[in-house]
C-alpha cells in the first residue's frame, strides 16, 4: 500500500471528523475517495500529508509513518493538491513551478516544467501572474505543481473544481492515465460520474467512518440489490406475468404501461423471457438495470450529498 490509514480518529472540539478509519491505496491504482460534505475526506487527506495530527491510530505514506523520520523523504515523492490550488499570487505560473522545484530540490527542472505546463494547457500563460488566473487555470496550475518531480503518489482533493466541461474531461483523462507514468492516485471528488470513469478503486466514508472500500466493480456489485430487470409485456398480460414471476420466487412489480420491474436470483435475463414465453406471454422488451456508483453511494450514505 502506498498510503494507509489504521484506526485513525480525529476530532475538532466536540465534532468527530474521523473515527476508526482504516483503508489503503494499492500501488498503481486510481482510488476515488467519496463521501458527503463534512464526511471527513479532506481531513483524511490532511492527516495523510502530515498537515494535521491524528488523535488515534496512524497513517503512513509510502511506508513511512506520518511525522516519522523518513516521512520527509516520503512526502517528497508525493504530489498533492489539497483544498484548491495553493499559489503565490504575485509569481507567474512558471515561477510558481520553479519555487516548488526548488522546495523539492529538483535539478534542472525547466524541461519538466515546460512539459507539465503543456500537459495542463498553460504553456502560453506561463509568464502570467497566478493571481490573475481564473479558478480553472489555477486548478490546472495546482495540478501541474502536484505532478512536478514525477511523484510516486499523487493526492488530489476535488481536482476538477472550477473547470469547465471540456476541462473536466481533459483532467479526468489526464488523471486516469497517471498510472501509465508509474503514479498511484488518491482523488477525492464530488462528481460521482467522474470517479466512476477515472477510478478503478473507490473508498466511501460517511460521518468519519468507512462504509465501503474496494475495486469499483466490487463496491458497485456489493450494493445488495442484485440485478434488476425491466420486462415489457402487453398491458392485458401484466397480471398474469407478475403472477408467473412471483411464483418463481422473484419480486415483480408492475410499473404501468406493461412495464414490470423484476429483481431476485436471476443469472441470465433470457430466463425471464423463456419462462414467460412458456406461459404464452410475449415479451416485447427486456433490459437489465445495473446498479451504478451513484445509487450505491446514496444507499450507503443514507441519501447524503457529496
Amino acid at each position: 500500500m502506498l498510503a494507509s490509514f489504521e484506526g485513525v480518529g480525529k476530532s475538532f472540539g466536540d465534532t468527530v471528523a474521523l473515527e476508526g478509519l482504516s483503508f489503503g491505496v494499492p500501488e498503481g491504482s486510481v482510488c476515488g475517495l467519496l463521501g458527503p460534505n463534512g464526511s471527513g475526506k479532506t481531513t483524511a487527506i490532511r492527516l495523510l500529508l502530515g498537515l494535521t495530527r491524528p488523535d488515534a491510530g496512524s497513517t503512513s505514506l509510502l511506508g513511512s509513518r506520518s511525522g516519522g523520520r523518513s516521512f520527509a523523504g516520503a512526502i517528497r515523492q508525493t504530489g498533492a493538491l489539497v483544498e484548491g490550488p495553493s499559489l503565490y499570487s504575485r509569481a507567474s505560473a512558471r515561477q510558481n513551478m520553479r519555487i516548488q522545484a526548488a522546495a523539492l530540490r529538483l535539478r534542472r527542472p525547466e524541461a519538466e516544467i515546460d512539459g507539465l505546463l503543456r500537459l495542463v494547457g498553460l504553456e502560453e500563460r506561463a509568464a502570467t501572474r497566478a493571481g490573475g488566473f481564473s479558478m480553472g487555470m489555477k486548478q490546472r496550475l495546482g495540478l501541474a505543481i502536484a505532478l512536478l518531480g514525477s511523484p510516486r503518489l499523487v493526492i488530489l482533493d476535488e481536482p476538477t473544481n472550477g473547470l469547465d466541461p471540456s476541462g473536466i474531461v481533459e483532467i479526468r483523462d489526464l488523471i486516469s492515465k497517471l498510472p501509465e507514468r508509474g503514479m498511484t492516485v488518491l482523488v477525492s471528488s464530488h462528481l460521482l460520474s467522474e470517479v466512476e470513469l477515472m477510478c478503478d478503486r473507490v473508498t466511501i466514508i460517511n460521518r468519519g467512518r468507512l462504509v465501503a472500500d474496494g475495486r469499483l466493480s466490487e463496491v458497485v456489485g456489493s450494493s445488495g440489490d442484485g440485478a434488476r430487470y425491466s420486462v415489457t409485456v402487453s398491458e392485458h398480460e401484466v397480471s398474469a406475468a407478475v403472477g408467473c414471476l412471483v411464483s418463481l420466487g422473484l419480486v415483480a412489480e408492475p410499473m404501468g404501461r406493461g412495464l414490470i420491474s423484476v429483481s431476485g436470483p436471476v443469472t441470465d435475463g433470457s430466463q425471464l423471457s423463456c419462462v414467460l414465453a412458456a406461459e404464452g406471454i410475449y415479451v416485447s422488451g427486456l433490459s437489465q438495470n445495473k446498479p451504478d456508483l451513484e445509487s450505491v453511494f446514496l444507499s450507503l450514505t443514507e441519501g447524503g450529498t457529496s
Binding site: L49, L51, I75, R76, L87, Y88, L104
Partner: peptide
C-alpha cells in the same frame, strides 16, 4: 497571507 503553508509543508514537512 497567501495561504501557501500547506503547499510548503507538503514539499518538505520539517
Amino acid at each position: 497571507g497567501q495561504n501557501t503553508l500547506r503547499r510548503t509543508l507538503t514539499a518538505d514537512p520539517r
